[in-house]
Design a protein around this nucleic acid. Sequence first.
DNA 1: GGTGCATAGTCAAATCATCGGTATATAAAG
DNA 2: CTTTATATACCGATGATTTGACTATGCACC
Lengths: 122, 122
Amino acid sequence: MQEPTFLILTALAEGARHGYGIISDIERISDGRTRMRAGTLYAALDRLQAERLIASDREEVVDGRLRRYYRLTEDGAAALAAEVEALRRRTEVAARRLAARPRLGDAMFAPLPTGRLSGGLR
Amino acid sequence: MQEPTFLILTALAEGARHGYGIISDIERISDGRTRMRAGTLYAALDRLQAERLIASDREEVVDGRLRRYYRLTEDGAAALAAEVEALRRRTEVAARRLAARPRLGDAMFAPLPTGRLSGGLR
DNA sequence: GGTGCATAGTCAAATCATCGGTATATAAAG
DNA sequence: CTTTATATACCGATGATTTGACTATGCACC
């Protein structure tokens, strides 16, 4: 599963959302780092619908503009949960190895990494 | 960063490895779930080298066969560390939302968040 | 009446991974 | 001795997915 796909499913995990709402949510949960493109979104929405990971929820007309809402299906929630588990396993291995890695500038007995790697490196 | 790329960098985070060794390691750290194809690997190796995330370490000839070792550069280690952080943030948001999500078997509550979020937010 | 935001969508190009193949060397199986 | 398996490196074609660059519309603000 690609990153954009994962982010779309995550956006919908909180509840039904329309296209633009998904884009906004992704920008929000990534602290502005990831801006999903419309092309990415709508192609992925079609694909995910075909795969039955999401479904069309309802349509509204607000101020003369259409809003088409999508929601996660149970399959979609399961796929997202499985992906979360897989990502956790992978990041743990990578973090462990990075922590054990000697750096070029370091003396032999360097302590644990300083700086921005917050959160528990195991 | 795509999954295969991440796995290659993770494999090299432990130390220099040759192509086949990377494939074996990835199979090992994924408990046999991911088997990287040779085509994927060597294309990615070329690309990562061009991006200076990895570098050619040394070559050996063992039993008449060439072994070309690759290692992470400092840039590569930094890129992997950044990716680990990004993945952690993403998986946390997704996991939190999935945990808060009402399930099919549950009694129905309103779709918007009600006061029942107090439960086990892991 | 232009600018910008919210909203939906399309399409061509680029990126990257995958599949299936080539090639070589050794060792084991038949 | 020929085939098969394992270890190793690499390539070309194909395909899935993302990206970038658009079109379009209604409303609000200046």
